[in-house]
Write a protein that binds this DNA or RNA. Structure first.
Lengths: 361, 361
DNA sequence: TTGTAGGCGTTATCAG
DNA sequence: CTGATAACGCCTACAA
């Protein structure tokens, strides 16, 4: 028999282990699943039989009877470069971290054509126990569809329109207030913002939050709409400088956009922060590698993703569990693009503003 | 019955569809699986029954009998920020693209403590059909272990030590020759390199490849070791400038390291490319957002990842299929960090050097 | 072309 | 505490 034709490993079933150990299948099953009520001697005999036979449970068979796939999906929008956004790396890290304590698989899904149907089929077909929805496009019917069918689903960020679904979010209002307060404390008066997509909850909340925070400080605001991408930050900054050349501060709704916008400021002869102070949002890796490094509102993305994952597991384990919302408090991370003192040029990187503790769960 | 306690959807089995359609389970199964030999009228009746009942196949049951999980793992090293590397985003995009034509799930796995055992268990337990290994740490026994057990496995990049395993790689020698030729054509003579981890195949191949390419052009080389991370690029450039302040060109073994290194050059008063020309490797998103934009050796990462995925599917579908190696030819993407002419300041972004066509598959 | 019947490997119920 | 025995839902010879 040629080497290449030999199957990976011979298949060993409960039946076989039972025979070797001289007990019944049921008993072996109990040992495998750690059921307490098994005689010590028998347990040991079974364990020996398991190692000598090299037994490995067949997960499909188990899945068939337990009705658990032990797998959840992380559902992303279909964009071509979403996976290049450092934000997703942090989300993945958080989700994988929360899952690593379990034996639950993480299945990565981008919603392409027919993607929605496939997710529903997998959920109904018992191949997926639940889904984590991250930035599936605004007004995507998926969230509503899945919650209506009562599948375990959780959402990153508040739903576009009010709807009973478990989700986590950062307190956008607090974050915006931190940014506004910081810029005003720096003595800036002609303040602008580059928004995210205004048809997304985060985009909308950060605009209205920042505007009302400024208003309560007696300042007005001009805004230009971006789309949360680096390129959109670049072009939005171009427009902003053309329309409002006299600004002295900008709040940019994501670090990635800020990363695209900063070179534009430089090229237009604006020194940062001397002429224009800049504050971003996220504290993604992009913030650290901006020039100058970016003052930004930190979202504890990994923690939020981990919490979201735990919420999903809760819904899977208890289908009747109530829906839940967990809001995390952001902090301000002060770096050189909008330093503490007006004339500071220190390169100190305050990793955590400490103005607010994160709370959640 | 309270809404919250109602199960998502009532369970419908083949049995039930069969009853509704007035045929046997077997016939329904044939229709579901698209077997040709079914009478048109009966087929239609069955299809009608399927829609009226809302039947959805139970994948666990199917998996149990077909011995197929329809899921493969993408195995990553355990590092904390691997998911933040833009390289992985490209790999994911390629893999998902190749898988989107099938109904195969992509399971994301980071090798933490006990991770190896879990993968083996999933493979043996029929929960995973195969695995794609990407940058699992040098000398990780996993590749050898899985191939020895004859599980379907494929590898990104050549194995550290020769071993029969299907893999894809970029032609590192060609890529290095492109970089060396370009720098020499620019009239540079004091050429240095910042290497990747020299205990990885890519790190080693890019050092030896670049050195021998330079040697054949009559140039010598000084080198400093990095570790493929942005931070390592930064510190390596510091060391390089301290030890060899007179260099006029640097070949950096990854764009991410180059992204960390460029600001160091600037801070040390070296103009790029006037004083020091820089060439990177990968053509990742980092290359475009460097200042100045980076001339780099482009790896067709998405294509390579897609091909690697297809190879895995081939091994899954035919356990006796021979192992395979697919080498992709890189191209040189010329940007401002090492432009075409010595004095050029054009901002043209030559997206594809066109010196070599990619070939593969 | 269709139906019958057996089996895939577990878990779970219920006697003993 | 242990052992039969019956599902779980599907595929697939084999027979009709």
């Amino acid at each position: 028999m040629p080497d290449a034709a030999r199957p990976p490993t011979r298949r060993v079933t409960l039946e076989e282990v039972a025979r070797v150990a001289g007990v019944s299948r049921a008993t072996v099953s109990r040992v495998v699943n750690g059921v307490a009520s098994v005689d010590q001697n028998i347990r040991q005999a079974v364990e020996r039989a398991i190692t000598t036979t090299g037994y490995q449970p067949n997960l499909a068979a188990r899945s068939l009877v337990t009705r658990r796939a032990n797998a959840v999906a992380l559902v992303l929008p279909d964009g071509d470069d979403v996976l290049g956004d450092p934000f997703f790396g942090r989300v993945l890290t958080g989700v994988l971290g929360a899952l690593s304590a379990t034996s639950t698989h993480l299945v990565l899904v981008k919603i392409g054509p027919g993607g929605r149907e496939r997710i529903v089929a997998d959920l109904r077909g018992g191949r997926l126990d639940g889904a984590i929805l991250v930035h599936t496009n605004h007004n995507d019917p998926l969230a509503r569809q899945l919650t209506a069918a009562r599948f375990p689903v959780v959402l990153w960020g508040r739903p576009p329109r009010p709807m009973p679904i478990t989700h986590v979010d950062v307190n956008q209002a607090t974050g915006c207030a931190l940014a506004a307060g910081h810029l005003v404390a720096l003595g800036r008066n002609r303040i602008a913002t580059i928004t995210g997509r205004l048809d997304t909850p985060a985009g909308e909340d950060r605009l209205t939050g920042f505007r009302s925070a400024l208003a309560s400080l007696g300042r007005e605001l001009v805004s230009v709409e971006g789309a949360f991408t680096r390129e959109s930050g670049r072009s939005a900054m171009h427009r902003l400088l053309a329309e409002h050349p006299d600004i002295d501060a900008v709040f940019i709704a994501s670090d990635l956009m800020a990363h695209g916008a900063l070179p534009v400021l430089r090229r237009h002869g604006r020194a940062v922060p001397a002429d224009v102070a800049v504050v971003g949002f996220d504290d993604s890796s992009a913030a650290v590698h901006c020039d100058p490094p970016l003052t930004t509102v930190r979202q504890p993305v990994e923690d939020m993703a981990a919490e979201l994952t735990r919420q999903l597991l809760r819904h899977i384990n208890d289908p009747a569990a109530p829906r839940n919302t967990v809001i995390f408090e952001p902090t301000l991370v002060v770096r050189q693009s909008a330093p503490h003192g007006e004339t500071s040029t220190s390169s100190v990187d305050v990793a955590n503003g400490g103005l607010l503790d994160q709370s959640g769960g």
